[in-house]
Design a protein around this nucleic acid. Structure first.
Lengths: 250, 250
DNA sequence: TAAAATTGAATGAATTTGATTGATTTTTTG
DNA sequence: CAAAAAATCAATCAAATTCATTCAATTTTA
């Protein structure tokens, strides 16, 4: 039996069963364990499946880019709620900065304001924005492969040519002492710049981000209104002492 | 048995079975292994099938590649040839500007130079460039929905922060009097700017573009080397009197 | 007829395969 | 919880298959 035929059988079995044992592949293809192992290694390299002890598992990582709205994102439901609320803050005629990242991405489908202009540094945002016929400007700069965000000197320079009514920023940590933080200093500078260029700044942070802090500081809490789904009264009171907090309820 | 008939049989068997062993071809055609091997080599070159160890497989183009590289583009084959040649001009360490558009897009798969940096205003280019691990900068600006190109004041301003060893520009018309032209003045300005920022400028124009002219003027002929697949001697001589012309042969 | 192209056979090189080895991981058992 | 047993694994090897290349014989073409 030829290699591509075996590969086809392997992938087909995986379609049917999600997780398949090595021996099942051997039976289906009538060839040795060694051969199947080699096939699995190769297919794993090609990102067609994931090897697991005892066999192989289906991998649907590719959907991440296609259906950004699917489950691949953590806390997707919370992010959608926060996104929906944030989108409702946009008013007709606003000039908006939308930060890169999955949280702000969730806002776009819910935007209803007319006659707005959006500037973003998120390449993934473009497609969705254009689909809604929203005039979109992209910040220039270096493309960060992992997150598809635009960063670096060029991005900042490019950003400084604009000013905004409102900006919506995603963060990785919100901390009572360290303020808003994110792991990549390059991204932190962009977010910081956007906040300074905006009349009003909003930070979108689901409950998993609260009381967390990561490497690079973006801004102190009071520089932006925080939008979150956290419901712990005590925790919220702590942050409300420092800045404005909007809580989204399901 | 004649060559075209063998080829027909080979392709037909593949239609029926997806993956076919060498020996099955031998049986079906009653000729030697050597002949079949030669046939398979040739048919693979013509992209009619894919050789695999032990036989041949039907080649099923990935949908992604199909959408970007295939039928949506006119003169795809010529553009690939031109793209391949243009890509070979890139040298290790070059800073390159890649204009938006399908022709320049065809270059990317063929780029082999190491340690290069690419700046582009084509959003479609990003994915392909990043896949090849080429550090990529995106020009800022307004996103033109129809072509997914970045245009406008912001784009020019963003572009002027760089300078290039070489730039590769797509055009819609090449005319002995009007020079290089394109329908959208906004795009024309970008292309023009890129040419002025480059040590060497290359215009990619398949034969359908020659002796055509569209609304917005980019630059006179002599400001860029023209890369084309046109083979009419007389026509070429006319352009060669005005500028450097590189002709790609299939 | 001579030159060019095609064909089939022969050669050694390259690839694939299944078995075997000992190492690693998981499960069972005390 | 830990040791033993079982299963699975990666690495290696030799046999078998398949491959590209070459060359002479044949057919086609000029």
């Amino acid at each position: 039996m030829l290699t591509p035929e075996r590969h086809r059988i392997i992938l087909q079995l995986l379609q049917e069963k999600e997780v398949v044992k090595l021996h099942e592949f051997v039976e289906a293809t009538q060839c040795s364990e060694s051969t199947i192992r080699r096939d699995l290694s190769q297919l794993e390299k090609e990102k067609k499946l994931k090897r697991v002890h005892g066999g192989a598992a289906l991998l649907q990582q590719k959907r991440e880019e296609l259906s950004v709205f699917e489950k691949s994102t953590k806390n997707i439901h919370e992010k959608q709620l926060i996104g929906k609320y944030a989108a409702s803050l946009i008013q007709d005629g606003d000039c908006i900065y939308l930060d890169a990242g999955t949280t702000t991405l969730q806002m776009i489908p819910y935007i209803e304001a007319k006659n707005i202009v959006v500037v973003t540094n998120g390449i993934m945002h473009i497609e969705v924005l254009l689909e809604k016929d929203i005039p979109t400007y992209l910040v220039g700069g270096l493309i960060k492969k992992k997150t598809n965000a635009l960063i670096g000197r060029g991005a900042i320079h490019s950003l400084q040519q604009y000013s905004f009514d409102k900006c919506f920023i995603g963060v990785n940590g919100v901390h009572i002492d360290f303020g808003y933080t994110t792991p990549d200093p390059e991204e932190a500078i962009i977010k910081q710049t956007a906040i300074h260029l905006s009349q009003q700044a909003f930070v979108l942070a689901d409950h998993s981000k609260l009381n967390e802090s990561t490497f690079a500081k973006i801004a102190p809490l009071q520089e932006a209104t925080m939008i979150t789904d956290e419901t712990d009264e005590e925790l919220l009171a702590m942050y409300e002492a420092k800045t404005t907090v909007e809580v989204v309820k399901s």
